[in-house]
Design a protein around this nucleic acid. Structure first.
Lengths: 191, 191
DNA sequence: CATGAATGAGTGAGTACTCACTCATTTAAG
DNA sequence: CTTAAATGAGTGAGTACTCACTCATTCATG
């Protein structure tokens, strides 16, 4: 009955926002995003009512992307150690392969634009990882750490590893292996 | 021959900038900083020619503060393990006690306003920590990790620990102990 | 000692510019 | 034809920084 919205334009805007936010941070102007997407400034606001809405949509998009990178082909039946390494490697590999996505996601996460409700919603995408950590604890493979600390350590060491690889991609494999060794050393009971 | 600058006004501006940047990020208006310091907007620009200069001055100020918190009473003659724990505890304790300073410093560090030269200059304040890491490596207490990775791990795990304590200060001591256990597990050779 | 000229800090309205968002108009799908 | 998407100049609320002026402080002079 009327002209429909074009989903590929919406995606072009999200893609442009990824590049722009990664390079300039969240305070980059919306005009730069629309220009990068080769779409008029006005159209941006028919797809996203406000800049905040655009940021939230991009946040969800990127979190889904990351979660599926980690969760696809997840070796659900394998040992804790194997699953752990799977998660860590996939996480780091995703962040290195899609540096712009990672940087945009970091900018958004550090800002306070995304509501706690949306954050909580997107955390459900990572339920598989929580289950893994719970298994590890139950099998007494892990140190007794305060609740939630192990998942934060996973994130912190993965992010650190990615930053190092950004700076010196040649040694990517060394950093990746060393990062997992450190993570395992940090969390595992000493055998 | 003329009215002298008043150092306490400069400090008031730096203090206000700490609060404002911690709460609103670096994009907070200079007018809010001068207002918080109860100093006219014009005066801010007699003490700091540009906003960037203010940010750089604050960065150096906070880095000196952190370095002296870590380095004062440093147990230079003690074992690597004792020195290590000293650094970690002092780092985390400083960050928790001065949450605003830590958040402002983080905002500044993540922005690209501070030149690499200034960053390098301020890193010299932490030479004692580098020496400690070198000693640990030489005494074969540490895993063989790619260069620079151990200091990044120290930073990453300390920051993670501080974030957790912010969220749940009651369990501060638990997080602090667990954080150091994790750090040591991450870096030490397994004996 | 008194005085006032010299200096530069202190002030806040003003300036030039940027940004998120709007709207009148055009274009295209159904 | 009807409807809504597409466009980009326009709008008004900020923002970093300036500038014309005031006033505190110093010290050379009589």
């Amino acid at each position: 009955m009327s002209r429909p919205r074009n989903d590929s334009r919406r995606m072009a805007l999200l893609d442009a926002a990824t590049q722009v936010f990664a390079k300039h941070g969240l305070q980059a102007p919306t005009s730069l995003i629309s220009k990068t997407a080769r779409i008029s400034e006005g159209s941006l606001f028919t797809y996203f009512k406000t800049k905040e809405e655009l940021v939230t949509a991009l946040y969800l998009d990127l979190r889904v992307d990351l979660a599926s990178a980690i969760t696809s082909n997840f070796p659900r039946r394998s040992s804790v150690r194997v699953r752990f390494e799977h998660v860590f490697r996939r996480y780091v590999t995703w962040g290195v392969a899609y540096e712009l996505k990672r940087k945009a996601l970091r900018s958004i996460t550090l800002s306070n634009l995304v509501t706690p409700a949306v954050r909580a919603q997107s955390s459900e995408l990572f339920a598989e990882v929580d289950r893994l950590l719970a298994d590890a604890l139950q099998q007494r493979l892990m140190k007794d750490l305060p609740a939630g600390m192990s998942s934060q350590a996973l994130k912190a060491i993965a992010e650190m590893t990615m930053d190092l690889i950004d700076r010196d991609p040649e040694r990517g494999d060394e950093y990746l292996s060393a990062g997992f060794q450190m993570l395992w050393g940090a969390l595992a009971r000493k055998p």
